[in-house]
Design a protein around this nucleic acid. Structure first.
Length: 539
RNA sequence: GCCCCGGUAGCUCAGCUGGAUAGAGCAACGGAUUUCUAAUCCGUAGGUCACAGGUUCAAAUCCUGUCCGGGGUACCA
């Protein structure tokens, strides 16, 4: 890529002058007036060879062969070396975008596998608005990896062995019992949502009124029904999972006991007060953590260690966990456990996101599945539409808190930047139809006619796409793609506003501009599809 | 107690693997409508980048401390 070439230019200069030095860089400029790229080499070098940086910069500029057509050089103020890339270079990229279409910028060889675990909410009720963030984030991260050539497994892990599910089963039975007139008190702090009434009715229809309280149907049927509803919600958001893994099986196949045994063998666990402790202090932590409570029930750490061993053994090249802030304290323990057992962890990437704070006006809504005072993800989709919902959850970086005012949601949805992107795409579609209707005449494509400021800056923006995607591959932050697409759309709207594409008096220019529009549309389409957002032809 | 995140324009936020003039949207004000879809564009105004030190040729960006706000967590008493 271009940056490498610029770096090697500097590198060769250094070599020719037998200077050995590190820490210098060539970076793209965001500001106007200093060329496309700049290097700080002279500033770094000045200290070492005790020379004025400006003089060094000018020497480097002078060393450049002026016949070189790719770029020209200049030196400015404190001592920057600026690279001005030739327009031809960008025009070539533009051609490449048109040739390669939505494959533009895609790395060819990767053939790797990745596992992305997300949502992983226990099937105790419908997905709430609060789950939306994890859900959307995980799906987009998966898409980013897919685009980069990974064969991605989307995995949903749920805990059906613990207290929550037992409570759900009892709550389900209580609803059933009440409907058929048995005198049964609902469990204390059980689940009370209306969705359980619906399920109870179905159970009556399907299995009749004579089920015992310990019938497996309460657990099985309730779990299945709730899962169906969760899957429905996910489907409406365009998300489908490849695998659902359950905690239960880790008990059944002995994986959990195995972890306990091995930790004991390594003297990394001990009993105290009837509980089993994980000796994390001997692994550099401040305090030990509980693996199995004195009640005999394991804490979340133990099954999660076993589950991660299982994932690692499935030999993915990359394992991504999308976790909410409640895991901040605990996931390091899980990794520690894996390392202690000699399981490789350096290909595990944990993405933690902060929670969403839901508000109604100024009032914060505390959501609880158990108490059934929640706004479902379905509600959001119904009110705002899939595209707005998807965009909404990645408008802030995963690591920042996200405030969501439900009262203003609809209001704000009209101002949602996603429309700005989609409008740019729709505008282009419309324009191309117009163009084909109005201009029948054929002409050769001459991109060099595109030399207006707005045109050039749009072309440069489009050219940055592969670099952006590369960054995205590193950071796995969908927001960065969204930000980039907003910039592309802005550059396009600006160009569109200031220049006519269809001009019957200048067909060659019209044609070149039409191709610029095509290229813009390709980039927008590719980006939007990675975000799982529709690219409309009309708005 | 321990941990995480944030404090940038009136509001909501970008920018934060250090770079040269701190950016958008909304709100305000003024302009563009015989339109290639105005869900757009052009312009004006708006900033001690919480505060204080430090590192550096260079700090909104890195380090330390302080203040303020949000959140998480414990077989926690």
């Amino acid at each position: 890529m271009i940056q490498k070439k610029l770096e090697s230019f500097i590198g060769e200069y250094l070599k020719a002058n037998s200077c050995e030095i590190q820490n210098w860089s060539v970076s793209a400029n965001t500001k106007q007036g200093f060329g496309d790229y700049s290097s700080n080499i002279a500033l770094i070098l000045s200290k070492k060879i005790r020379q004025n940086p400006m003089e060094i910069a000018e020497k480097i500029v002078a060393s450049h062969n002026k016949d070189e057509s790719l770029f020209s050089l200049s030196a400015t103020k404190p001592g920057f070396v600026n690279f001005h890339i030739s327009v031809d270079y960008y025009l070539n990229i533009l051609k490449k975008i048109l040739d390669e279409g939505t494959d533009f910028g895609k790395p060819v060889k990767h053939a790797k596998t990745a596992n992305v675990e997300f949502v992983s909410s226990n099937p105790t009720g419908p997905l709430t608005a609060g789950h939306g963030r994890n859900t959307i984030l995980g799906d987009m991260v998966s898409s980013i990896l897919t685009w980069h050539g990974y064969n991605v497994t989307r995995e949903y892990y749920y805990n059906n062995a613990g207290k929550q599910m037992r409570m759900l089963t009892e709550s389900s039975y209580a609803k059933y019992a009440k409907k058929i007139g048995r005198d049964v008190a609902p469990p204390e702090s059980g689940y009370i949502g209306e969705y359980l009434d619906d399920i109870a009715n179905e159970i009556i229809q399907k299995f009749g009124k004579n089920l015992d309280s310990d019938s497996v149907e309460f657990r099985k049927f309730t779990e299945k029904k709730i899962f169906d509803s969760i899957k429905g919600t996910l489907k409406s958001l365009g998300i489908e999972f490849d695998i659902f893994s359950e905690e239960q099986s880790l008990y059944e196949n002995g994986a959990i006991n195995n972890v306990l045994r091995r930790l004991e063998e390594l003297s990394l666990s001990y009993k105290k007060d009837g509980a089993t402790w994980f000796k994390t202090t001997s692994l550099g932590k401040k305090e030990d953590k509980v693996l199995v409570k004195s009640t005999g029930e394991p804490t979340y750490r133990l099954p999660d260690i076993a589950y991660h061993i299982d994932k690692v053994e499935r030999e993915f090249d990359l394992i991504v966990d999308i976790f909410g802030a409640d895991h901040i304290d605990t996931y390091p323990d899980v990794l520690l456990g894996l390392e202690a057992l000699g399981v490789k962890t350096d290909h595990i990437k944990v993405i933690i996101h902060q929670f969403v704070t839901l508000k109604k006006g100024d009032e914060v809504v505390k959501m609880s599945t158990r108490k059934a005072n929640f706004i479902t993800l379905d509600d959001l989709v119904e009110q705002l539409g899939v595209d707005v919902v998807r965009y909404f959850f990645i408008m802030r970086g995963a690591n920042s808190h996200l405030d969501f005012d439900f009262d203003l949601a609809k209001d704000e949805s009209e101002k949602n930047p996603v429309y700005y992107l989609q409008y740019a795409h729709a505008r282009i579609s419309n324009l191309i139809i117009r163009y084909d209707n109005e201009i029948k005449e054929k002409t050769d494509l001459d991109m060099s006619l595109l030399n207006e400021k707005d045109e050039v800056s749009l072309i440069k923006k489009l050219s940055a796409f592969p670099t952006k995607m590369n960054e995205l591959h590193q950071s796995l932050e969908p927001r960065k793609l969204a930000t980039y697409l907003e910039e592309v759309a802005a550059a396009y709207h600006k160009f569109y506003g200031n220049h006519k594409v269809i001009n019957l008096d200048n067909i060659p220019l019209s044609y070149a501009r039409k191709n610029l529009c095509n290229a813009t549309q390709i980039i927008l389409k590719t980006g939007l599809s990675i975000l799982g957002i529709t690219a409309p032809e009309k708005m």
